[in-house]
Amino acid sequence: MSVVSINEFISLLANFPIFAYLFSFVQDIIISILKTGPIPKHVAMIMDGNRTFAKKRNLSLKQGHTAGAESLVKVLDTCFRLGVKVVTIYAFSIENFNRSKEEIDTLFGLLRDRLKLLAENENSYSRVNMIKIRIIGNKSMIPEDILQDLEKIEDKTNLETSEKILNVCFPYTSRDDIVHSIKQTSHQRMNGLINKDSITLDYVTDNMYFGPDSLPLDIMIRTSGQTRLSDFMLWQCNYNCTIEFVDTLWPDFKFLSLIMILMKWGYYKTLEMESEMNKLNEKDEKEFVDILKELPPHPPHKSVTDRK
């Protein structure tokens, strides 16, 4: 409850220039404080709740999605300013093709426009900040005209100097990803590039859409209170990854909500690192005593079989 209402209050106040300035100042301070602690390298997000948001406020579907896109820009900015290397977003699931044609077209158009806005000009956000945009997923399912635009965006942002990556999963499901990897691996074997023994866990992982140089996932965030993964990064998130399900709807998920998740993660990470350090310093010095050997000797055996 509290996060949403605080967020609403803040967004109301932010309409005044003085407060807007003050907030950005406070945000800068919070970011520089948080930066001194551990920061996750890879964050993934399932942006759920745009439609519920629209329904709640009597907005059209399109307005709901637009509000979600605005929220995304803010969250991305915060992540990258904090020093997160890779952000992955679930933009469109293969299952989403079940939606109405109108909504699919809206979503495709919105996504293309937003990405264009991020990457089109020399002074666009992702090019100034050296962020590489990658489209992850089954590209054969994207309509031709949109695919061309997306590939143009990928090319434009694919610079050698860019250290940060924005993965846009579009259209993606994790099962499709796993099958894609199995196909790729089989293909490579058929062409004689590898033999049976070189198929390992790492090899299969490297053949996924995310590619071999992708960083392991640290945090997965899903908004709007659903507690399931909906076929998103199942392979990547099931080990050594913090999964956060938050009740906030995606358009309401803003700076503060994100900071709270990262703060919690940083807290546990610090403790984990500290106790590992302590373990290294202590190095098992416990001595175990064999109680049986420490006992005083027992009386001599005397048995009926000993009788001569």
Binding site: V179, I182, K183, I199, V204
Partner: peptide, 24 residues
């Protein structure tokens, strides 16, 4: 899943399975 990948690739090499037939 890794073992399954091995089996699938084995079948593909022996031409018992087409790669296009590997589906979800």
């Amino acid at each position: 899943i890794v073992e399954l990948t091995k089996t699938m690739s084995e079948l593909a090499v022996n031409k018992e399975l087409k790669i296009e037939d590997i589906t979800i």
